[in-house]
Design a protein around this nucleic acid. Structure first.
Lengths: 233, 233
DNA sequence: CTTCGTTGTATACAATCGTATACCTTAAGA
DNA sequence: TCTTAAGGTATACGATTGTATACAACGAAG
């Protein structure tokens, strides 16, 4: 994760980057000292106070930055995945018309999204480590901020599922709830993905089937048994 | 969470309890000092070294203790829930014979289990806070230990689902995978449950439907569409 | 009764900590 | 041009840290 030089002061950038490094290398945000952080950033300890009131503020700045860099790319991932399965120009076919086609398409989009998601994790491991760690970490402030991030992420997902027609019609609450579970699962698995490179394929695949399980289970209980029975005939 | 005086030295017990307290009150295990811990336990700083080589060892001791106290009760919860729905003596009815009955039964057991699980969380909040926090925390040793704990927990769950007949026949790998997702979700939600008392009912209910979504989705894709279509007719 | 391992304490010390105060540089606005 | 605010540094100090060394109480084993 890099920080745009234009908007942030040099020192602030360096401190945030150093914090990411320290966090990734087996520490939590409250596990290292202000001085250690400054040392890692190559700065005077007092410089910290020029930019942050305390560690919470540092964490918030990082999270905010993370969010701004992650949110849109993840949405793009989903669109990209959807378009890789159904080219943009093609006419929409409803679930009622052809359940099986839509089911297969949905599965493929899910798998593609998962794959791209984990590639994204692989490209930004430190951000994810810090995020997942502090999601249940020691600072209430950061926990709240990260929960909001997860919530927004789930909201985006629900919206995309709807507009991309990835599921038969569900009531909004159920859809959001399913999206939240998927988000949690994905973020949680991202840690395993980072830490156990030899299991990456397996993790990827299991995440995919978990999503299918969840979405189809939800669709079924949402009144679409018949549809799915047709799809799987 | 309490420690049996008989087996553990007084000081060791006190230190473990103090660590739980400090962790629950917005700190992670590497977020406080050895001296602070000793102070909270009412002991001399050096007493720590009599029992632990470092913080990892302390954490492992706590986790081990946690596991020994949590594992069996959670299994009992499931049995208890199952028996509250189907009294112990009653003759088993297969999914093929009566899909609808089994479906309803499965749903009820799931809900009852979830309810009891969260009651258990409510009774041992500190243990869960420490566990979930260190699951993605800073110490690789503790992370590994807690992942094993989660794995064992999922394994138990899969076994119980099978022997209690809570799902139509699934291949073991899928069953275990579903159990793992459920475990992760439950533990993750336990934090929300602790921190947001006003949302407890909602969390409980959502956990229940997530489980049903997952299990039924999995059953459906495992080849039981027809069965579930009958159940939901 | 003596010995010895276990559990806990007391003291001590160098290293590191957070932070207060003061100073320097640079770029922007008046 | 002079002023001012922001970003960064230097020095300093009392508090706290991890840990080494030495010592006390005590129950069990010999």
């Amino acid at each position: 994760m890099s920080y745009p030089k234009s908007v942030l002061a040099e020192g602030k950038r360096l401190l945030m980057a150093a914090a990411l490094d320290l966090t990734a290398n087996t520490r939590s945000l409250d596990g290292f000292s202000l001085r250690e952080l400054a040392r890692n950033a190559g700065l005077n300890p007092n410089t910290f106070y020029r930019h942050f009131k305390g560690f919470d503020e540092l964490g918030l700045a990082i999270i905010e930055d993370m969010m701004s860099q992650i949110r849109q790319p993840l949405r793009d991932l989903r669109r990209e995945a959807a378009e890789s399965v159904v080219p943009p120009g093609s006419p929409p076919i409803s679930w009622q018309e052809n359940p099986r086609l839509n089911f297969v398409r949905s599965w493929q989009v899910s798998n593609a999204t998962v794959e791209l998601f984990f590639k994204f994790v692989e490209a930004n491991p430190k951000a994810f480590i810090l995020g997942v760690r502090e999601l249940h970490g020691s600072s209430p402030v950061l926990r709240k901020a990260l929960r909001k991030l997860m919530k927004d992420f789930a909201h985006d997902m629900a919206e995309d599922i709807e507009t991309l027609g990835l599921l038969p019609k569900l009531d909004p609450a159920s859809l959001l709830s399913v999206s939240e579970v998927i988000s949690r699962e994905l973020f949680q698995l991202s840690m395993d993905y980072i830490e156990e490179p030899e299991r990456r394929d397996e993790i990827c695949q299991q995440a995919g089937t978990s999503i299918v399980n969840l979405t189809m289970g939800s669709a079924m209980l949402g009144g679409h048994v018949k549809l799915l029975a047709d799809a799987l005939r």
